[in-house]
Design a protein around this nucleic acid. Structure first.
Lengths: 352, 352
DNA sequence: CTGTTAGCGCATTCAT
DNA sequence: ATGAATGCGCTAACAG
């Protein structure tokens, strides 16, 4: 019923071993023979049996890319870039093709572990884990253990847009400088003259939330604005528009004379804008707003959003190449990627 | 080095077959034995060898979800919904877990075919193909052939948000009523009194583009507004913000007295808004704008966008369940999903 | 309910 | 440069 390598061998009048060799291209084969085999493959419309191949070779051509939220362009951009970098590395022939796939954890630590197990089960060639991590020590330990096993089994593990992990389970990590970016963003607001700045944070248990908030606090503290007021003007939520909306209303209730709102990311910032507008406040005339990430829609927002640009596409490509072994890991295994402050129309000096 | 099923069997003092049976759970096993085996699995930290399992069983637990653009929430929402529907069908035990993965074709027909081959190679349990199709007959033929082979090999093929295909290669298709939705959208504009309506279409070779444009033309024709003017006020582009921006400038150049712009989707509509605003036109006072899809950001746009809501999440979940065989296909194999007109602030009667 | 026996389709030694 | 033989780890008949 289904065509096997042996069928191809018979048609090409060679041994199965030879067919295997031309297909994998890692071995010297006479040009004429190769030609004949390739023709038989074509005529029979043969497709390699992946599981059989993976079983015999003890490794598969599967590369997994884990994301927290596939509906969020933040992850989509990174994943898409990684996926194309991995696909493009192929020789074009069917031989070197990797199957780069993205797995959506939905931010759930259990699903993260489950996907990793599934990938381990498939003997994945590499795994790219993207986005902020959970700060919970138990989960970090479990994750580290799982990644170590993957690494020991020959799977190359790459972290992208995620803080480094302890141990040597990870081949390479590309970390974003969330703290530094957040600090420069708040410094920008401070330099405009703002003093009563609200902060809409993400989920408290995520490293990204912590890092960005830390950066914000660094700037506030350096300006002598630390103290209890800082906590009072910080509201935690999720990385959604609705969360930004709700948190901003809360902020407004706590401090009606707010002159600026810094959001954990661009999506949250949009929700903040909606809440401010609804309260009859103009942006940036009455209140300035800033985001983080610089997703594609941010430049089109009205007014266009001041934010910190993260080179998501570039990071994804680098992670993909690292996963393929096409690039060598940075010294020490960790590379920190900086964000760039994008000053646009949503921030201005506070009203006099 | 690596723990195998035989190791588990030895530790649990049963035969390998029994271990296999408790792991797959599709066979009666005494509770005490199962307990012993599970304990051994745990103690040895055993992970099933997917390729070996797939080889022996002639099917894997991999489910592929193909999308045109992973960075576009349109696809992200459908893919995420499908993926969670597939994951949730699992019993919770490691046994029934499917590995739902998304593959990004980038809209390239070659990559679409390549991914399908890769999935075929892996003996995927099911494949969900999302989004608009290429209208090119050659590609449709190639795709049909490939899907037929997949189907013959036991892979369940489901189409989601995509027009039906000829033949019986496909187990089920969930099609969006793009034409009907587009028609009702333009009718809305017409009923407001608009007559000079520009249309910013997507890529000419995509079925989604065609269908939505057809719906628009249906409405225009019914209103007696067909003729050469219709073509003159139609500009093709891509499904991006930049494309909407450029096309709208072009439209404005062709017809400065335009009173409305209908865009192929919400993202394009945002670009259109930017171009109009830059031209000093107010929305909707001077020009009305409408989109399609009702992505999450559309309600937050300023002004909020009139559009046609497509139940992307619901469609994704249905596709996922269909792919798992958890739901039975609709009669005839095809189910058409209607959109819902969402009238918001970006459309208003034209100026007198 | 459980053990035994055969492959599944391919990559890889080892020969030649 | 090519062929023959072996085993990867597991599932699926069959027995019992």
């Amino acid at each position: 019923m289904t065509v096997t390598l042996a069928d191809v061998a018979a048609r090409a009048r060679v041994s199965p071993a030879t067919v295997s060799r031309v297909l994998n291209g890692n071995y010297p084969v006479a040009a004429s023979t190769r030609e004949r085999v390739l023709r038989a493959v074509d005529e029979l419309d043969y497709v390699l049996n992946g599981p059989a191949s993976a079983l015999a070779a003890a490794t598969s051509d599967l590369v997994g890319i884990l994301v927290n939220d596939i509906a969020d362009p933040f992850f989509g951009i990174m994943a898409g870039a990684a996926q194309s970098a991995i696909g493009d590395t192929g020789t074009g022939r069917a031989g070197g093709e990797k199957l780069a796939v993205v797995c959506n954890t939905g931010g759930s630590p259990e699903r993260e572990l489950t996907y990793l197990t599934l990938l381990q089960r498939q003997r994945a060639a590499a795994v790219v884990v993207t986005g902020g991590a959970l700060v919970d020590p138990d989960h970090i330990a479990a994750l580290t253990a799982k990644l170590t096993k993957l690494g020991d089994a020959g799977t190359r593990v790459v972290l992208c847009g995620r803080p480094p992990m302890p141990g040597d389970a990870v081949a390479a990590t590309l970390a974003f400088d969330n703290r530094g970016g957040a600090r420069s963003l708040t410094e920008h607001l401070l330099s405009l003259g703002h003093r009563r700045i609200g902060y809409v944070a993400g989920p408290v248990e995520r490293s990204t939330t912590r890092d960005r908030l830390d950066g914000h606090r660094d700037a506030m503290t350096a300006a002598g604005l630390d103290g209890p007021g800082l906590d009072r003007l910080t509201v935690y939520g999720r990385y959604t528009r609705a969360s930004g909306y709700d948190a901003t209303r809360e902020l407004l209730a706590r401090e009606p004379s707010l002159t600026a709102v810094v959001a954990a990311n661009d999506t949250v910032a949009l929700g903040a804008c909606a809440a401010l507008r609804e309260a009859g406040l103009r942006i940036p005339d009455d209140v300035s707003v800033a985001g983080f990430d610089d997703l594609p829609f941010s430049v089109d927002a009205v007014p266009s959003l001041t934010t910190v640009r993260l080179p998501l596409h570039e990071a994804g490509v680098r992670a993909g190449r690292l996963a393929m072994g096409a690039d060598t890991p940075p010294p020490g295994g960790v590379s920190t990627i900086r964000g760039e402050l994008m000053v646009r129309a949503s921030t201005a000096p506070p009203r006099a």
